[in-house]
Design a protein around this nucleic acid. Structure first.
Lengths: 349, 349
DNA sequence: TCAATCAATCAAAACGTTTTGCTAAGTTGG
DNA sequence: CCAACTTAGCAAAACGTTTTGATTGATTGA
């Protein structure tokens, strides 16, 4: 790898002159400029970003902490985040936290060591990670995605309202007995969605307490296994007193697992049992029956997160500060919308 | 951020002593060691990885170039690669090339500037990117995944054999008229899979030329739209002379799109038309009918890629060199296996 | 007792940049 | 013709590390 010194020597100028040619910070005669540029091209010189990051203030890199890349919702958001960051000149360091607080802390430490300019953080764990608090104290800008955390800027969707729309919709269809397949118990997104559903049911006149709850991972296997287990308890039996007529999943992956299980049990969706998901991943439109789900504006979430973060990082784009000169905390709340597809219908007579 | 200087000052020792405490390269008295460690903890000191990377030879970072993170196959491989890299102490810089050669070149330039220790590269484009050739010339270790490129180490699956298994299987089921939904025309993975299918059909006695070909993107939309278009041409009509009885998709996303379209056309899968995919993403087991597909060992692909790359990067783990002292090129070819599920059956009578 | 060895530590160079103070011309204006 | 600029370029410091040669006392061996 050719260095700036090599270029300087080959072009017969000083190192600083090469630097000035590149940055345009000082006037350079056209002749020298051309000669330097030519040498750069000839030698295939590329500035060493490590050295630049060391002397300058910015490394043009962001850390992205995602709980589970295998979940299409996350991978799709991650993809858009990556593209948005790249468009603005930032590289992304990918961290798959696997919902493990220890891994999370580990990654946070590495990212700080790497002097990232900022962090985009999808909380996968219940409690705010102490390592995160430390990072923030260290002055690294953080944007939280998908979950509201006090004192931290964030982008999230209106999970409660999404749940409410589901609840209202199902109650109006006539459902009166519900099975809620949650994600990890205690996770704010899960709580909000559940509370939303309850509120929706309540306002539409359905008994909100007629809902069975099963928490688990945000994975298809959770939906699949829970449905089979519930079936063994007779929850879907035609003659059951409180026959479940609709399954509400806290995310689409759970719903897809549940859908598979329902089919295996020869329960027709939606004829025998309706099914609703949450997230709006692309696959929900592809499966049969297509899945009624709450559509998150995942592209908007991603671009907003990047924009919010960079507005904090880059000087002079007017990020708000409070009266103490500290950066203010912004929360961007994006709306969600219920997408009604084939999987939800009126309950069996 | 506390620096090593701050630690040295606070502990009343020189900078080099702190460094030696951390690295263990020189003997340090127990008393000093304890005092330094204590100071480090108290100040929350973290070594600056940029500075380390600048002076040392390694940055402990790898570049990952993926064509399309939204494709579950890629995101799942990316996840495993990330985990394997992190376990070995490497960070991953994520690049979503979007199948665009210009973007690819752009990313490659950035990664070189960032002094990555190595590259894991999923080719999404037909021609080997000139920027890649340049990177290799610059001495950056590269491992290619999913496609055989001469003179480059790589990990890939036996696409031809996968296709062959599909062809044999379908011919033996009695199919005689095929529709192949390829990925991008000219892409080696597509070519290999197609040639495999043809060979399989041939050896099992089916007319390999009785296969219609439609190339397109590796996306669900391609499968969906092509099936609808083909249906309009009457390709699936019961009375058609050369009625297509099975759709062979070059990957699972295309297959899922095709499945949806077939359902919309009221064609029962597999009763009216069989369907086979390729990749073995998790979702193929979840949809109904579950998808017959060629299972790639995606976890093994990921870990092999990381292992192969690190064996080149890290000194002394015996990576082979040829007689000229250059690193030898290794190709790891992993087997695939046809997973027979509900979507493929004998053709209609 | 003296040279040789050893343990513990320090000082300085190096990595590849950017930034800034400086110098040596050349140019202007009166 | 000289002071005051301007232009173009150079040299050196700084960023936070690691590495290595040097230094100091203490310990050994004969």
């Amino acid at each position: 790898m050719a260095t700036i010194k090599d270029v300087a020597r080959a072009a017969g100028v000083s190192v600083s002159t090469v630097s000035h040619v590149l940055s345009g910070n000082r006037p350079i005669s056209e002749a020298t400029r051309l000669r330097v540029m030519d040498t750069i091209a000839r030698l295939g010189y590329r500035p060493n970003l490590l050295a630049q990051g060391l002397v300058g203030k910015s490394t043009c890199s962001l850390g992205l902490l995602v709980p589970d890349l295998a979940n299409p919702f996350f991978s799709s958001v991650a993809e858009t985040i990556e593209i948005a960051a790249h468009d603005r000149g930032y590289s992304l360091i990918l961290c798959n936290t696997n919902l493990d607080p220890a891994r999370e802390a580990d990654y946070l430490a590495v990212l700080l060591s790497r002097q990232v300019d900022g962090l985009i953080y999808f909380p996968g764990t219940r409690v705010p990670n102490p390592a995160l608090t430390e990072a923030i104290a260290g002055g690294v800008p953080v944007v939280v995605v998908d979950e509201r955390i006090d004192n931290l800027s964030g982008v999230f969707v209106d999970n409660f309202d999404g749940g409410r729309q589901v609840g209202t919709f199902l109650a109006q269809l006539g459902h009166r007995s519900f099975l809620f397949l949650g994600g990890p118990e205690g996770l704010p997104t899960v709580i909000d969605r559940l509370n939303g559903v309850r509120t929706g049911l309540g306002t539409a006149g359905a008994p909100a307490d007629a809902m069975r709850l099963h928490f688990g991972e945000y994975r298809a296997s959770h939906g699949y296994e829970t449905i089979h287990a519930c079936a063994r308890e007779g929850m879907f039996a035609r003659e059951a007193a409180q026959r479940v007529t609709v399954v509400i999943a806290a995310n689409d992956m759970i719903a897809l697992g549940a859908l598979r299980a329902l089919r295996e049990l020869n329960l027709r969706v939606p004829h025998d049992c309706s099914l609703v998901g949450f997230d709006g991943i692309d696959l929900t439109a592809l499966v049969t029956p297509s899945l009624t789900t709450v559509q998150q504006p995942s592209g908007k979430v991603a671009t907003s997160a990047v924009q919010l973060l960079l507005s904090r990082i880059e000087p002079g784009n007017g990020h708000m500060r409070d009266e103490n000169g500290r950066f203010s905390v912004s929360h961007i709340i994006l709306p969600v919308s219920l997408v009604v597809r084939e999987s939800a219908a009126a309950p069996p007579a």
